[in-house]
Design a protein around this nucleic acid. Structure first.
Length: 921
RNA sequence: GGGUGCUUAGCUCAGCGGUAGAGCGCUGCCCUUACAAGGCAGAUGUCGUAGGUUCGACCCCUACAGCACCCACCA
């Protein structure tokens, strides 16, 4: 016997372990068709957040759905070494101990990071298991930790080196001194994508550069860079300055003169029309300098302090101190012409938030243009499809304007670049040191100290995880994978790069479909952020958490007291009771239900609660079925007679429809639709109608009717469980184990049972029509009850001028008696002469015989008459419109006519009743 | 500057060229032998604004407004 209500905690733990240890998540060596999903590898030291939980729910639903449909499923998972992020974490730890990575040295430091990875690396994969993720943990599991691949493990690293060397051989990787985005705190280059520019309040200053007999005023937001100026540029057609082009002006403080040059880049309308040119510290100026053959003067050290190219006074000053000093000196010497507040876009490092400095350094780049073209073609030809489709344009736009990718990072944690230098600085790129040495016999080689951008290895995952560069059968089976589920924020970072790399190295797409999931926000649509306190931990939703605990964990690590206050306030307002335990299934069902094609998903706790209630409903429906079928004849013996009523045939028919809807939902990646379809079928049809009517049929004297009812109860439920399993795996497994035997089925697990398939031949329109009538009569009669405000115990006869027009009248009237709590149904030629409320259903008029207040009833009828008159009027107008009748499809016109006729018939009956109530004058 | 998305019930969102929907919330009645995490019944919308196309527009087109996001080098 089942517990009285659904208690998720116990069943979840048990079933996940059994599934995993039984090897149900493992792919088959050689079986088609294959279905493969690549998990966006989470940061190895990270923890699961709502975005992960959402994504993984969808992936797992897809995987489970296809597994049940007999696909050879392989959910390839792994974790990412997340170069910068992980290095920062460990550096912070060292900092707390008063150490820096430089104190340890590279080797010791990297060792330390590995330790940290081993220690915290399993957190996120453990959490994924709590979500029920049926991931292929043992696949590509080089490190034997049942966590899939690790982007820095031996096998994955081999692919990285191979790709690097090959791209280099093909001339697609090059090294050069370029201006790159530099994070002066981390001391590394970062790619364009890792820089976020936000508009901030700043100032703009005007500086006067004197020439012979004239002076030019330039505007700048970064006055300290003037020490590295090499020219002042004006627009070639600018009449104001034409005369000065070619002359020189004095560069204040620096004791140099610089030329006045003409360049189209200058917008004469903007500012003074004069631009200072600082090639070493500005991307535009760099181009201008190049065009005019001006050598950049770099005035900054890598830590953003001024270097020896600056006048002595400023050397060693930090960049913002230098700014102050330069401004003070310019002002004192009369060269500062103006200063105003100004809104500017400040480029900040995505990791440290520090202002990024354009810095002239030696870096490695990937030439992107040629790689991008095939990636664009694939999307244009529809071989690569985005869901929702509009993301294609985001993808396309970026690829069409792609810049070379700076892949070197001046970090210690990551794939060290496979390049060696001899004493003359000549570079040898090779698969390993010995191979490099072979290229440079007798020379002393030194390995490039840099590591690769984390996204470099991520870009290879779709094929490196399948064993590339070896030729493996898995690449035939699982490449391209079926669908990638990921967030829009990494379309550039990851999606596009995977497509390019995969096409280039394997000739195949990494995946056919890309589902871009919504961003999870809080219930009000606010971004979730630690400082607001509106983040939710998926595990807290599953297990529940007390108010005190929640406050404690949300404020830990917050330094500012005001933040703590704010967070506490938010939690008090939104989770005064903490969070109750909803269980994994409820959380998953919520995610699925909210997964429409909208761009954001506002996670609402009350929705989660609603879907927990749904789980409870399913649980109790099963309880009912078990109570009424266990140990009884459920019709598994096909030789015994079975009679199915229109009610049985109706629910079976509906089942076919919901199965088709769910299948469509999966095809379209409309998880909201499929979840909604399941919800409505289970709750609104099976529980609200079928189970209630089954109660009646189970009392039928005919053994064949009882048998048919039990069989239908059990079979439809058993099928529903399979239908819902991809979304709510735990509860369906638990219940299926109990229900399946009654339906003559057996199995270790529901997850390997065949997925329900809609059988159109079982759609029974006659039964559906009968049921529609029964529902209509029931609702109308219940309405009469509600109007009459009958106490629950009071049962009255229903007077009806006709019997329900269905194939089985006695069943229908019996059903009516049960569902609308009637004493009996009396078929009469005329309703009793009474002011009691009358309902009109089709041809019939229904009345519960009961004394009522005639005035109230008159009121009600008048309202109803007005409504009907309004509808008739509206429809009549349409029909009166000649061009509607002529041009609209005949079917639509006919429908409209029927509509009017129906309304009019009802109106007549309502009017007649009203007549009766109207006091005779 | 370029691009994308959104605007429908109190809230969060579906929706479709032909009778405006769901969940939650709300109101009333009910602890009816699966379920009060429940049952039954009910109320609620000039579908952002203005034009256009159409027999017919919430839906298609145009413009506008507001909100959100992405990309881009304006000193």
């Amino acid at each position: 016997m089942l517990e009285k209500s659904f208690e998720p905690a116990a069943i979840e733990q048990r079933w996940y372990q059994r599934w995993e240890s039984a090897g149900h998540f493992v792919h088959a060596a050689d079986k088609t068709p294959a279905y493969c999903v690549q998990l966006p590898p989470p940061n190895v030291t990270g923890t699961l957040h709502m975005g992960h939980a959402f994504q993984q729910t969808l992936m797992d639903a897809l995987i489970r759905y296809h597994r049940m449909r007999g696909f050879n499923t392989n959910w390839v998972v792994g974790t990412d070494h997340a170069g910068i992020a992980t290095q920062i974490v460990v550096e912070r730890q060292l900092e707390e101990q008063g150490n820096s990575r430089h104190d340890l040295g590279r080797e010791k430091f990297v060792e330390r990071v590995w330790q940290w990875k081993q220690q915290s690396g399993s957190t996120i994969t453990r959490q994924m298991r709590r979500l029920g993720a049926s991931a292929n943990w043992s696949y590509a599991d080089t490190e034997g930790q049942k966590a899939g691949y690790f982007t820095m493990d031996e096998k994955m690293s081999r692919a990285v080196v191979e790709v690097f060397v090959r791209l280099h051989e093909e001339g697609l990787i090059y090294r050069g001194k370029r201006l790159v985005n530099w994070d002066p705190v981390l001391g590394t280059a970062v790619s364009d994508l890792e820089v976020d520019s936000e508009e901030e309040d700043g100032r703009i200053w005007e500086l006067r550069y004197p020439g012979k007999g004239f002076s030019l005023t330039v505007a700048t937001t970064r006055p300290e860079t003037m020490l590295g100026d090499v020219a002042v540029a004006v627009h070639p057609d600018d009449a104001r300055y034409k005369a000065f082009v070619g002359q020189r002006v004095e560069l204040p403080l620096a004791g140099r003169t610089i030329p006045v040059i003409a360049d189209e880049y200058v917008d004469p309308q903007f500012g003074t029309g004069c631009v200072k040119i600082t090639p070493a510290h500005d991307f535009n100026d760099y181009q201008v300098g190049k065009r005019h053959g001006l050598d950049p003067i770099n005035i900054l050290r890598l830590d953003a302090h001024l270097n020896d190219n600056a006048p002595e006074k400023y050397r060693g000053l930090e960049r913002f101190q230098a700014r102050k000093q330069v401004l003070a000196d310019l002002s004192a010497q009369g060269f500062l012409a103006g200063e105003k507040p100004y809104k500017l876009r400040v480029p900040r490092s995505g990791r440290t938030g520090v202002i990024v400095e354009p810095m002239l350094t030696d870096q490695w780049f990937v030439r992107m243009e040629g790689l991008a073209r095939p990636a664009l073609d694939a999307a244009a030809k529809g071989e690569l499809k985005f869901f929702p489709e509009h993301w294609t344009s985001t993808y396309r736009q970026w690829l069409e304007n792609i810049q070379d990718w700076c892949i070197s990072r001046q970090l210690w944690w990551g794939h060290q670049i496979p390049a060696w230098y001899d004493d003359e600085g000549k570079v040898y790129v090779a698969r390993n040191e010995a191979a490099a040495q072979a290229l440079a016999p007798g020379k002393a080689l030194r390995r490039d100290a840099d590591v690769l951008d984390t996204w470099f290895s991520s870009a290879l995952v779709p094929f490196s995880s399948l064993g590339w560069p070896d030729r493996t059968k898995d690449q035939d089976l699982f490449l391209p994978s079926s669908v990638l589920v990921t967030g829009f924020d990494i379309i550039f970072f990851w999606v596009a790069r995977m497509v390019m790399m995969s096409l280039h190295f394997t000739g195949k797409l990494p995946f056919r479909d890309v589902y871009i999931n919504a961003i999870v926000r809080d219930a009000e649509g606010e971004k979730m952020s630690k400082s607001k306190g509106n983040t939710l931990d998926p595990l807290d939703l599953i297990d529940g958490i007390s108010f005190e605990e929640l406050v404690k964990k949300s404020t830990v690590g917050l330094l500012k007291a005001e933040h703590k206050q704010k967070v506490q306030g938010y939690i008090k307002a939104h989770f005064p009771q903490g969070i109750p335990p909803f269980g994994t299934d409820a959380l998953r069902f919520t995610f699925a239900s909210l997964a429409s094609f909208s761009r954001t998903l506002n996670f609402d706790l009350s929705r989660c609660e609603g879907y927990r209630n749904f789980c409870n409903k399913l649980w109790n429906a099963t309880r009912f079925v078990l109570m009424n079928t266990e140990g009884k004849d459920c019709g598994t013996d096909e030789s015994l007679p079975v009679r199915l009523s229109f009610v049985d045939r109706w629910i079976i028919s509906q089942l076919q429809r919901v199965e088709a809807e769910v299948a469509q939902g999966f095809t379209d990646y409309r998880f909201d639709n499929l979840a909604g379809a399941i919800y409505r079928f289970v709750w609104d049809e099976y529980c609200d109608w079928y189970v209630e009517l089954a109660k009646l049929q189970l009392q039928d004297s005919d053994e064949a009717v009882q048998r048919g009812t039990r069989r239908t109860l059990v079979r439809v439920l058993e099928t529903s469980l399979r239908l819902a399993h991809p979304v709510i795996p735990f509860i369906t497994e638990e219940l299926w184990q109990k229900v399946a035997p009654l339906a003559g089925k057996r199995g270790d697990t529901i997850m390997l049972q065949p997925y329900p398939k809609s059988q159109p031949e079982k759609i029974d329109e006659a039964a559906e029509r009968d049921m529609a009538v029964l529902k209509e009569w029931t609702v109308a009669t219940r309405n009469l009850r509600a109007e009459a405000k009958l106490p629950p115990g009071e049962r009255l006869p229903l007077y009806a001028t006709a019997l329900p027009p269905v194939s089985d009248v006695s069943l229908s009237t019996a059903a009516l008696k049960l569902l609308a709590r009637l004493d009996e149904v009396r078929n009469v030629s005329a309703l009793p002469d009474s002011p009691s409320p009358v309902a009109v259903v089709g041809e019939a008029r229904l009345m519960l015989y009961k004394e009522v207040d005639p005035a109230a009833e008159r009121d009600r009828l008048q309202k109803e008459r007005a409504r009907l008159a309004g509808e008739i009027d509206k429809a009549r107008k349409q029909l009166g419109n000649a061009s509607f009748v002529e041009r609209a499809p005949a079917k639509v016109v006919e429908q409209m006519r029927e509509r009017v006729a129906g309304f009019e018939a009802t109106l007549a009956k309502v009017s007649a009743q009203l007549e009766k109530l109207t006091p005779t004058r």
